[in-house]
């Protein structure tokens, strides 16, 4: 056990899995860096440094820098996965999935089903996601709902360094195509992370905090905000459970439903666009399966239905914040009291 950053935790996951299994290869733009240049090799290790040091250990045969041709190399990762390799392809920013969407949603996602179970495609597509870096509309999106929509893809959104390492190892070992999203505002976050390899199973939510009064379901970076809010609200006598599904597909509905059955109240914090998103999805699941347990309407904390803006005050207003989570929780608690008084 030692303190590691999110970036280091991921790097360790790649290193350990590459040592364990020679079929694991990495592909992506500048994931090592300096290809064909006269200067330092492995100069970047990926745009934000998560794969630094891997090329020197494993060579350019297993750490493949690519031209800027996402359709080709993401698709090649799918084809290689179906034929014996275990590729981890980095789509630098998840926004760029627009370039290679077909290879993800029509090819890798559907092989197994369309081919009647005759294909296995153990590929990981990893990408940076999320707002907060003033990176504007084409470099800041939180697109897990898009991938969750497609049957055949597993979708992972880790909420801390420990989670990132264990979930990445599971993603690499998993035999289905996995979309793995890394929040760019979390790469320098640190916590205690085991030194040895460990896998966190998909479809098992983590309850960061148990609570009696209200359930807060959150994803990725929003889990941190939910935890901060829960801490603060505890001081006000409101006991919040914080549930982190870890994977949006598969989704651990049981843990969410059990918590809501206990608390009777639900707030969902989702950095993705509000329409057709996870907050909407979970609301519908709870409405269908735990309606009787609800003491108050479900409340969603999401950005508005707009692209991600550039300017600081706009982006700050766009992204959910701990203050907005707290306000939502108080609102739900109050709605409940008002209903009780009526």
């Amino acid at each position: 056990m030692s303190v590691k950053s999110f970036r280091e935790a991921l790097n360790e996951a790649f290193r350990q899995e590459m040592r364990r299994d020679p079929a694991v290869v990495l592909l992506g733009e500048d994931i090592s860096g300096g290809m064909g240049s006269g200067g330092e090799q492995d100069a970047w290790g990926g745009v934000l440094g998560t794969t630094k040091g891997l090329m020197p250990e494993f060579g350019r045969e297993r750490v493949l820098d690519t031209p800027i041709s996402e359709s080709a190399f993401i698709g090649a990762a799918a084809g290689a996965a179906a034929t014996g390799l275990r590729p981890v392809a980095q789509l630098m920013f998840v926004d760029f999935f627009g370039v290679c969407g077909d290879q993800i949603v029509n090819q890798m996602a559907k092989f197994r089903y369309m081919f009647g179970g005759n294909a296995t495609t153990p590929v990981v597509v990893r990408a940076l996601c999320g707002a907060g870096l003033r990176a504007a509309s084409q470099h800041s999106q939180m697109l897990y709902p898009v991938f969750t929509h497609f049957p055949g893809l597993k979708v992972v959104i880790p909420s801390s360094p420990y989670e990132a390492k264990g979930l990445m190892i599971q993603a690499i070992r998993d035999d289905d195509p996995v979309i793995f999203l890394e929040h760019k505002a979390m790469l320098d976050d640190t916590e205690e992370v085991p030194d040895e390899a460990y896998a966190i199973p998909f479809g098992e939510a983590r309850t960061w905090r148990d609570g009696e009064d209200i359930t807060v379901v959150a994803f990725g970076r929003m889990v941190q905000f939910a935890r901060q809010s829960a801490e603060k609200l505890a001081g006000e006598g409101i006991s919040c459970a914080v549930v982190d599904p870890r994977t949006t597909s598969p989704l651990d509905t049981e843990t969410i439903l059990n918590s809501v059955r206990k608390t009777g109240r639900l707030v969902i914090v989702d950095e993705a666009y509000p329409r057709c998103g996870m907050a909407a999805d979970i609301s519908s699941i709870v409405a269908e399966q735990a309606f009787d347990a609800l003491k108050a309407p479900v409340l969603k904390v999401t950005p508005p239905h707009t692209p991600v803006p550039f300017s600081a005050p706009l982006e700050d207003a766009y992204v959910p914040s701990p203050a907005k989570v707290e306000a939502a929780v108080r609102h739900v608690m109050q709605a409940d009291r008002l209903a009780g008084a009526a």
Partner: peptide, 9 residues
């Protein structure tokens, strides 16, 4: 292109 030389890419 970023760190990648155009001679190669």
């Amino acid at each position: 292109a970023e760190t990648t030389s155009s001679d190669w890419s």
